[in-house]
Simulated scan of single mutants.
Amino acid sequence: MPFQISPLLESDTAAFARAEAAAAENWPYAQAMKTAGTPRHIFVEEWARKQIGADKTVHWLKATDTETGELVGAALWKIPDGGAAEMGQADVPVQATALTPADKKADAGGIRHNGGSPDEMEDMGGNAALFASTEKMWRAFEAEYIGTRPYALLQLLLTHPDHQRRGAGTMLVRWGCERADAAGLMCALSSSAAGQKVYTQQGFEIVVEEEYDLKPYGVDAVEVRRRMIRPAKSAAR
């Protein structure tokens, strides 16, 4: 395997922030996050350092190149204790199943964020109004399509541009899907066009598309987000 999935530690936050900044460089939503001239990676590093370990249901993961040790991707999976009390960080590192050529082709990389309160995301150098709007749209989707059912949420997925289409993103997505399956949980996420294919190959289905008008936040762009759900599998016996 070219990559290993393991917990992202506080000592990894600088590398994580650099990878996140590279992945988000051309992302309009990221451009709407006001940083007052401070490099984005500094805000992201400080945010990650504060958040790692703060919520025991959020699993911070990294994908590292097994030859160089370089951090090439990362993910945040939020898996509720009610459905996955036994699935902690001790479950990683893992030996992922083999990636097919189709997996690697689908793994376009990039970045996506989902969830997080406006106050938490403000620590990331963001625009509180932007994040409040994002959170409101997600909660409306959650209320209509998920309801009160527990689910595993892929909050963030990123792959460094230099390592896209090599399968790291697929491994990070599969990590959470396998644990959700073991607990009989559905999965949900919000996807850009770039990330859609890797998610559909792991069983996610688009249920609704929504637009973010970023003009009120200083960026002349409208971003389409695809809300996706992966149905719950039967819990392993």
Rank of each mutant, 00 (worst) to 15 (best):
A235F: 04
T68V: 00
N127F: 03
A235H: 02
G176N: 00
E46H: 10
Q201H: 13
A17Q: 07
T68M: 02
W77K: 12
A24H: 01
G115A: 01
A108S: 13
A188N: 01
E25D: 03
A23S: 07
A108M: 10
A194D: 07
Q201F: 02
L99A: 05
A85P: 11
T57P: 00
T13W: 08
G147L: 01
A21S: 15
V219Q: 03
R227F: 15
K105E: 11
V222Y: 13
K34R: 15
V219I: 12
W175Y: 14
L158R: 00
F141Q: 03
G126Q: 04
I5K: 11
E205H: 12
Y145N: 09
M87N: 15
F43R: 04
G218K: 01
G116D: 01
E25L: 04
E120A: 13
V198S: 05
W47D: 07
F3P: 03
V92D: 12
M1G: 13
A48N: 06
V44K: 01
A17P: 04
E135W: 09
A108E: 14
V207F: 13
A182M: 08
E210D: 09
L214G: 02
S117H: 03
Y199C: 01
E211N: 06
E223K: 05
I146P: 08
E135V: 07
E211M: 11
F16K: 05
M1N: 04
E20L: 14
A194K: 14
K233H: 00
P118K: 11
P216H: 01
D81C: 12
A108T: 07
A152C: 02
Q4W: 09
A32S: 12
G195Q: 08
I229P: 00
R18L: 11
L76Y: 11
D91K: 08
A152D: 06
M33P: 01
A188E: 00
K233L: 12
A232V: 10
T68D: 13
N26V: 12
I52T: 05
V94I: 15
E135I: 07
M124S: 09
G125E: 12
P2N: 12
T66I: 06
L99K: 06
A106E: 05
A15I: 00
A85E: 05
G82R: 00
A128F: 10
Y217H: 05
W27I: 02
V58K: 15
M33W: 06
A19G: 13
E20K: 06
A193P: 02
E25K: 01
R179T: 09
P150K: 05
A36D: 15
A14L: 09
D91A: 00
K104M: 15
Y151S: 09
K50C: 13
H59N: 05
Q164Y: 12
A98Y: 06
A75L: 13
A36P: 02
A236E: 11
E70M: 11
P118W: 07
A182K: 15
G88W: 08
R40I: 00
A85H: 08
L130C: 01
N114M: 15
Q201C: 10
T38D: 07
L158W: 08
D103K: 02
A63P: 02
A143E: 08
L157P: 10
V173P: 03
A19W: 12
T57C: 10
G167A: 08
E67C: 05
T13L: 07
